[in-house]
């Protein structure tokens, strides 16, 4: 292994949208290989924007973002695409291309490496196809390769999304609300799978989560984002109720059942 295991180094990252609304006010984040970082915070805090600034789906306004020491902010064209190949992204479950088969969806993870006409004819290198079969098996979807994506359940779709991102052989994994619209049990299974695969491949992961419970269970480190500023950073154990109030605003955080609601 190389001595440099710092995968991602974000400094003073800012993003303002046209019209002058600044949604990220200078973020600093470091991430090591094999580390599972979760970002929590209220809707509109800038979690999704943060992820999209890293892989350039949304252009950042200022700051620096280094992937294994090389600046990737502000890259354009082919250089930007080359950087994106090294960064896998997992979206909400509905971000699969519905009318493509499971196999096509997974293989689209290799689009950055495949020529246009080969991809048009769906002729991917045998190594990629073998890798796709292996990943489908690993995420528990053996035999589903010819199924159309819109025929799958939410949990199955998310497994395909994970396989697609991993087929890129990424160094960094960006995960945006992976469990939104999934039931609690499926959500846990998906998080566990992500966690295992990240460990197997020594991946650095940044995951946005809405569910604080899941964040506590599955992350090495948690960042709390509120209105574009980091207001908490620490281990899951350090996330107390008062910290949650800092992140989300005042609320009664007790998880005991509210007794008798009748008026």
């Amino acid at each position: 292994m190389s001595g440099n295991d710092k995968v991602l180094q974000i400094r003073a990252l800012r993003k303002s949208y046209p019209g002058g609304v600044e949604v990220l006010h200078g973020l600093d984040i470091d991430l090591r290989a094999g580390e599972f970082l979760t970002v929590i915070g209220p809707s509109g805090a800038g979690k999704s924007t943060l992820l999209r600034c890293i892989n350039g789906l949304v252009p950042a306004s200022a700051g620096s973002c280094r992937l294994r020491g090389a600046e990737i902010l502000g890259l354009r064209g082919a250089e930007m695409r080359a950087a994106r190949r090294r960064i896998g992204m997992i979206f909400q479950a509905h971000a699969l291309v519905d009318r493509l088969t499971v196999m096509e969806n997974v293989l689209s993870g290799r689009l950055g490496y495949t020529g246009f006409w080969s991809s048009w004819a769906r002729r991917f290198p045998p190594g990629d196809v073998a890798g796709a079969f292996r990943l489908l098996e690993r995420v528990g979807l053996e035999g589903y390769e010819d199924r159309r994506a819109d025929r799958l359940s939410g949990g199955q779709r998310q497994r395909v999304g994970i396989a697609r991102a991993l087929l890129q052989s990424p160094e960094l994994l960006l995960v945006d609300e992976p469990t939104a619209s999934l039931d609690p049990k499926t959500a846990r299974q998906i998080m566990r799978l992500l966690r295992e695969l990240a460990a197997e491949n020594n991946l650095a992961v940044i995951a946005n989560l809405h569910d604080v419970g899941l964040a506590r269970m599955f992350s090495d480190r948690i960042i709390g984002l509120n209105a574009g500023t980091i207001v908490f950073e620490g281990a899951p154990g350090e996330l107390t109720d008062s910290e949650l109030s800092t992140i989300y605003g005042e609320e009664d955080w007790s998880t005991e059942e509210v007794a008798d609601v009748s008026a």
Binding site: N55, L57, A78, R81, A82, A83, R84, R85, I87, G88, M89, F91, Q92, H94, A95, L96, V97, D98, L100, E104, S108, G109, R110, L111, G112, T114, F116, S119, W120, G161, R164, Q168, L174
Partner: peptide, 22 residues
Amino acid sequence: STEQIEAIRATGASLPKILVFG
């Protein structure tokens, strides 16, 4: 759906490939 197109874009695919797959 923007999500489907964005997901293909995130793989590092160029515009023609985004059109074909996304």
